[in-house]
Amino acid sequence: MENIYISILIKSLSAGIAALGFGILFNIPRKVIFTVLFLGFLAGLIKFTFLNLSFTIITSTFFASLFVGILSIPLARRVHKPIVVFSIPSIIPMIPGYYAYKTILAIRKFTFLTVSDSEHQTLLNSIFTNGFMTLFILFAITVGVSAPMLLLGKDMARKLND
């Protein structure tokens, strides 16, 4: 049982590091480096906890990015920076790279290799499952992270940017 918690912690930590790396790639201001690391870590923590509670990966990703979106608002006020500066890097670790990879692998096999009919069917299955997984996880991320900002409207934005 303890092992699971430790592996969740380590995975979340690497999510944080990944977020930080992308932040640096996008040249974020020095002040928010730790904020990004922290947010990425928390997002990973939430995602893997939900996954552990046997939610689907789409739901858990949605909750994690929703959380990032909500938490970004008070944080933005504290460090006086626009929200996107740290919300985007910290959700990037959740990008469904492995599903996208599997989709491409299946497409490649489907188009470039001659295989039997039954194999074609399993490949089609694989393309569609992984492809739609990728697409819906992406949707979950974008909707989750931008919903809080949208709902709060313009007056809030004025206050945040002070």
Binding site: S14, I17, A18, G21, I24, N27, G44, G97, Y98
Partner: peptide, 21 residues
């Protein structure tokens, strides 16, 4: 940011990804 910091942190990010998956 100096180039080597970018290279280092992004590569670490890649390693982090590998761990996540």
């Amino acid at each position: 940011y100096p180039l080597w910091i970018i290279l280092l942190t992004v590569s670490l990010a890649g390693a982090g990804f590998a761990n996540i998956f």
